[in-house]
């Protein structure tokens, strides 16, 4: 029901196939974490700012060439008092990316510290650069 609502608001129509999968948000409060992406010879590395979550609250999945990162953020203000001034919202983080066939999905690893998530996506053998030795005849 919530997914349908999201599709309607972002496209202005009732068609469900016009939105990319990134917009099928689970909750109403969903924030887009800023990311840096680096490529080395052996891997891609996605580094995301996701303050206020925990390693057990983060879900990383790869399906149909899509990398999806979801992080649950617990509400922090309910017990403290009244919010007098608000410049940012607190809620779950979500990002997803198209990643081609060149990722070894089984070897994806991630760390979370100081509110920063670092995801290592090792390249599959097929896309690693290969040096061709030229034989002297």
């Amino acid at each position: 029901m919530i997914n349908q609502h999201t599709n309607t608001t972002c496209c202005g129509t009732n068609t469900t196939d016009c939105c990319s999968e990134t917009d099928t948000v689970k909750r109403t409060q969903n924030y887009r974490a800023p990311v840096d992406v680096y490529e080395t010879e052996t891997e891609f590395r996605v580094i995301a700012d996701m303050p206020g979550t925990c390693s057990d609250c983060i879900e990383i999945s790869v399906e149909d060439n899509m990398l999806t990162i979801d992080a649950e953020v617990a509400s922090r203000y309910d017990t403290l008092g009244t919010t007098r001034h608000q410049e940012y919202g607190v809620g779950d983080f979500h990002r997803s990316f198209r990643i081609g066939d060149g990722i070894n999905a089984d070897a994806i690893a991630a760390t979370y510290s100081d509110g920063v998530l670092s995801v290592s996506l090792p390249k599959a053998e097929v896309i690693k650069p290969r040096k061709i030795d030229i034989k002297t005849v």
């Binding site: 800023p34 990311v35 840096d36 992406v37 680096y38 490529e39 080395t40 010879e41 891609f44 590395r45 580094i47 700012d49 920063v116 670092s118």
Partner: peptide
């Protein structure tokens, strides 16, 4: 800002 060694930057959004 942690940068992997000998890496090419593909996307930069963090402040």
């Amino acid at each position: 800002i942690e940068t992997p060694e000998e890496a090419t930057s593909l996307r930069r959004e963090r402040s």
